[in-house]
Simulated assay, not measured.
Amino acid sequence: MTPPNRPAHRSVHPEGAGEGVLTTRFVHASDGVPLAVHERGNPDAPTVLCVHGFPDDHRVWDGVADELASTVRVVTFDVRGSGASGHPRRIRDYRLDQLADDIGRVIDAVSPGRPVHLVGHDWGSVQAWHATTDPEQHRIASLTSISGPCLDHVPYWIRSRLAAGPQGWKDLLGQWKSPLYMGFFQIPLAAPLACRLGLVDATIALAAHFETGARPADASAHRARANRGALRIYTANLLPRLLRPQQRTTEVPVQVLAPRRDIFITPASQVDIGRWAINSRVHSVDGGHWIPLFNPTAVADHVRSFVSEDANSIGETR
């Protein structure tokens, strides 16, 4: 985590009125990439920083933010390669160390005097885990992880499942979809073309329909076409982290929200965290992979409770 009080380009403009007012500023990453940061809610309350995954942008958190804005300050931002943030072209610009540093830059800009509560979904959760398990970090009060384990923990989980006998092998077989789609997203020409043609958006919409029983989500809700630059996150991190994992631990309070019908990241692969987070808990929640979109109330309720509990027990002094 990088030190506070670094300069940031602030271009603030309102996008609403009243309690739900949304303001936007741009914070510069350590390599100069502009990050579009969006804030709403009670400015005097604890800050909840939400980090999205692929192929979303900050809008995947709109429902959750609307639920939380009356009690906390909610900050979202477009991860590099998505939304209004910069879209660097080099693969190395999407490594987890850089993405975690981006989170640190946003924290420094929006909450220089108080730690924040991280909430991550999908690759946003992977990034949040990486930031939280940085031994130098001191600005994170809690982590809520949704459908995205720490990438360095995955090889250890696989080994534990292989040694666990039939039930462990069943857990591994249940995760068979992840290598398929993650491998596809690393194919240089095919994956960007599938995003550009809308095939990824259509597939996600069908998957959401399968998980929730609801009508397929509008393809624009997932924005793979616009955010295809963030595909570089897969290439930059998967093989290096899985082949040479680190034992990353944290004393920060962690809660995992494991959607029961997530067909991409199964509950079994998310809940074995006691080894890595000594102050941790797991909640099974109703919904599929895109639970921030389809069941924002459940997410908001757990985040609100966790933030309140942490503030009452240890204060905002981490």
Rank of each mutant, 00 (worst) to 15 (best):
S111Q: 04
G165A: 06
T133A: 12
A69P: 04
P292S: 05
L99D: 02
Q127F: 02
D262P: 02
V271Y: 00
L242C: 10
V72N: 01
S178M: 14
V307W: 06
Q175F: 15
A268G: 08
V74R: 12
Q127H: 00
A217F: 13
L143C: 09
A191V: 10
A217K: 09
A191G: 14
A236S: 07
R159K: 08
A131T: 09
A311C: 10
E67D: 03
T212V: 10
T71H: 13
L151F: 09
P4E: 08
H87T: 03
R244L: 13
D134R: 13
D31H: 13
L49F: 07
G104A: 04
A191M: 12
L35Y: 01
S142C: 15
R232S: 09
V74G: 07
R196H: 12
R25H: 12
V74I: 12
S82E: 01
V116L: 03
V200H: 11
V75Q: 01
R261V: 08
L180R: 09
V21L: 10
G168A: 03
A100Y: 01
L172M: 06
R80Q: 02
A65G: 10
R225S: 08
L162H: 10
D134A: 15
G53E: 00
R40H: 05
G213S: 11
G124W: 02
P55W: 01
L162Q: 10
E67H: 06
A84S: 12
H121S: 05
H153N: 02
S147P: 05
D171S: 10
Q247P: 06
G148E: 02
T47V: 11
S70G: 15
E211P: 14
F26T: 08
W290F: 15
A84G: 05
S313D: 12
P4H: 13
P292H: 11
V48R: 06
L193R: 13
T133F: 12
V256P: 11
N227I: 02
D272W: 11
A205W: 10
T317M: 01
R10K: 14
W61N: 03
I265S: 06
P135M: 11
H38D: 04
R89L: 08
E251L: 08
V72P: 00
A205K: 09
I103V: 11
T266N: 01
F26A: 06
R304N: 13
Q270W: 13
R161M: 13
V256E: 07
P253T: 05
C50N: 04
R196S: 15
T133D: 07
L151K: 00
R10P: 13
F77V: 02
V75S: 05
L143I: 06
V303K: 06
R228P: 05
T266H: 03
N279L: 04
G81D: 00
R73G: 05
R215E: 14
R90N: 04
Q175S: 14
A191S: 10
M1G: 14
R196M: 12
S220Q: 09
R232D: 01
H52G: 03
V51H: 01
R159Y: 10
